[in-house]
Amino acid sequence: MKIRQIRAFLAVAEDLHFRKAAERLGLTQPALTLAIQALEEEIGVPLLQRDRHDTKLTFAGEVFRGDITEMLASAEQAAERVRRASAGMFNYLKIGFISTATTARFMPRLISEFRRIHPQVELGLQNHVNVDLLAMIESAALDVAFIRLPLVTPHRVEIASVYKERHVLLLPADHPLTQQPSLRVRDLQNAPFIMYSRRNAPGYHDLIMRTLNSNGINPTIAQEVGEMYTLVALVAAGIGIAVAPISARNYNLPGVVLREASWLPAAEIGLAFRKDDSRPASRLFIDLALRTRRENEAASEDEAPTDPSSPAAAALTRRDAAEKE
């Protein structure tokens, strides 16, 4: 049974007139007749009753038309899905993210650009904490996810760094240290800290703790939190000091003062995905994320002072030395 035979039958069934159906299909009337006869021979029953004056559907033809119309629509939809998938234009892409991927504004811009380039790909977005995102990538509940680095990567998962920004210190607005023109590491000794929960992001929690410890700070942990917004809110409430990506300022909470600390490591966001995911929509999104990262890095290099004797570089060196004292 061929698609052209089915289309020929449906055209005749609709018009109940061989000449009109043949014209609509762009066929000669003998060719249309042969297609219908071949279909009837294959099925084994007559589908049309015709004489010199009239063409009618047999009872078998009525049944066949109802069933085959749905089957033809499904076949055409399947063919279109295959064509779109082959061109990388079809799929439902499931994207997970941590909340700070949105405040950094890298992810919203990336998704907006992807939708502009590939409007046929439907996107589904889900916000979760780090450990949940990683598990969902591994189980294929998500296709890609923006995750806070560092973390231990499962064997089936690959993670590419796609965004970097500075870490800063967050202080309550009424904290005595906000009155100092610059902060030294020793000023933070014995200060109560609000920490991001190790249960939600063990690698990130350990990075911050190692950094504090290696600089001689053994923080008193006043509170652990599972969301970056909560961390900033508790700083605003005066519960303690915190380390956070600089994009946390985009929460725009009053009562929080940001202070630079060059001894803090960079804050990184990675894009996690399964190594064996070869679907075009996933690969297109990953490729765009990596290309955007490279473009951002090139722009940052163009803006950075390269001459170590320049006033800007000298000022940074003096500030770093002062902060370490």
Rank of each mutant, 00 (worst) to 15 (best):
L48C: 05
R116H: 12
V82N: 13
T28K: 10
V131M: 12
L48H: 10
E41Q: 14
N127L: 11
G66T: 13
T33Y: 14
M107L: 11
S112W: 07
G88W: 04
L125K: 09
Q126N: 09
L123E: 07
P30L: 03
S112F: 08
R105M: 05
M71F: 05
T103W: 03
A87M: 09
T58I: 01
A38C: 00
G61S: 04
F146N: 09
A22T: 03
E138K: 15
S139P: 03
I147A: 10
S86E: 15
A85L: 06
D67L: 12
L48D: 07
T55C: 09
P150T: 09
H128L: 06
R116T: 10
R52C: 00
T69F: 03
T69A: 11
D51N: 15
S112N: 14
Q29W: 04
Y92V: 06
P46N: 08
Y163F: 13
P46E: 08
G44L: 01
V63S: 15
L25F: 05
R81M: 02
M136L: 11
H155Q: 15
A141F: 06
A73L: 06
F64M: 01
L25Q: 07
A135Q: 15
I147N: 09
L151C: 14
T55I: 08
V121W: 06
K94R: 14
V63C: 12
L57D: 09
T58C: 06
S112M: 07
A135G: 14
A35I: 00
F64L: 00
T100I: 11
A160F: 10
R24L: 00
T153K: 13
F59W: 13
P150S: 09
G124C: 07
D143P: 06
F59V: 12
I98A: 15
A60K: 10
H155S: 15
G96C: 02
M89L: 14
V144F: 02
D67Y: 14
R50N: 08
A60L: 03
D67Q: 15
V162W: 03
P108N: 10
V121S: 07
F90N: 12
R109W: 07
L125R: 08
E70S: 08
P119M: 06
E122P: 00
E42M: 04
K20L: 01
I111D: 04
Q37P: 00
N127T: 09
E80I: 00
E80K: 10
Q37V: 05
L72R: 09
L39I: 01
Q29V: 11
T103I: 02
E158F: 14
M71Y: 12
E62C: 07
H128M: 03
Y92M: 01
A104I: 00
K20Q: 10
R52V: 05
A75L: 10
V82C: 03
L27F: 10
Q49G: 12
A141G: 12
V45W: 11
R105S: 11
G96K: 05
Q29A: 08
Q126G: 07
N130M: 04
A31S: 13
Q49W: 13
A21Q: 04
F106D: 07
R81W: 08
G66I: 06
T153G: 05
Q120P: 01
R116Y: 08
H155L: 11
V63M: 12
I95W: 05
R84F: 07
A35P: 00
D67F: 13
E23S: 13
L39W: 02
V131F: 10
L34C: 01
F146E: 10
V152P: 07
F97N: 13
T55M: 02
Q126A: 12
Q126W: 09
L27T: 03
L142M: 05
